[in-house]
Amino acid sequence: MNDVFTEADLAPDPQEKWAHIASIVDRVAALVAVLAGGVYIGGMVALGACAAPAVFALAPAPFSGNAMGAAFARFDKIALGAALCVLAAEVARTVAARRRGRTILSRLRRSCTLFMAVSAAYVGLSLTPRINDLHRQGVRRDGTPQGQVLELVHQRAELFGKIGTGMALGLVALTIFTIQPRRPDDEEDDEEAVAPLPPGPRDG
């Protein structure tokens, strides 16, 4: 048995190294998720709540529909990129957390991530191309059969846009709440640590 104290005795063990790496991964992935979710929320609010009502009120058809269709088609690429980022960040956080990621808040965060990604993909890959295709055919939102189809697709796009925005808001909030503030080893050390006695004579 070697009783000589060496510098190697101060080096962290593999578990401590993994905990440190996992903590860094958790924070970086959380930052990516918050930024990507914020980009998605900002784009949906800017286009859906601000630009679309103004354009449809000021520009006559079919120019208004064509303009907003082109704007949403471009934003959908950004939304899909944001969805991929939050999915990748969620995978990284789940792997880094291991058993600590089995909490209710973490599961809710994963659900919000999944529903946001599904909403963005459905709108960007199905609904927006369908709307733009109908606009190119000269269809307007009126009482004709094709006009009713366009109206239905528009309503569906608005619905899933709101769902995606709500899920993104939940994702951002839960991402912040579930950041691991400290490594579990630190908490164990605090619980096991005993404060030194003050100097001076001791009773008994």
Rank of each mutant, 00 (worst) to 15 (best):
T175S: 12
V172K: 02
A97R: 12
L171V: 03
S126I: 13
T103D: 08
P184S: 15
T165K: 04
T128W: 03
V86L: 01
A71L: 11
S111R: 10
R156T: 12
R74W: 03
D189S: 14
S111H: 08
L114Q: 02
G143K: 08
A70D: 11
A89L: 02
E151A: 15
L159F: 10
I104Y: 05
A83L: 00
G147Q: 10
F72Q: 06
D76S: 13
V91T: 11
L159Q: 09
L159W: 07
V149C: 06
G166V: 10
G166R: 05
E151K: 15
R156Y: 05
F72V: 07
R130G: 12
D186A: 12
F177M: 13
V86I: 13
V149N: 09
F160T: 01
Q148L: 14
K77Q: 12
F75A: 05
G101N: 04
R98Y: 10
I176H: 05
L105G: 12
V86G: 00
R130F: 09
A120P: 01
M116R: 06
G69T: 09
L84G: 02
T175P: 11
H154R: 13
D185N: 07
T103R: 06
P181K: 07
D190F: 08
V172N: 03
E90R: 07
I163M: 10
Q146Y: 03
A70R: 11
F160R: 01
P129G: 07
G101E: 04
D185W: 01
P129I: 02
Y122L: 12
I163S: 07
D133L: 12
G143P: 09
P181M: 09
A117V: 00
R107E: 15
R182W: 08
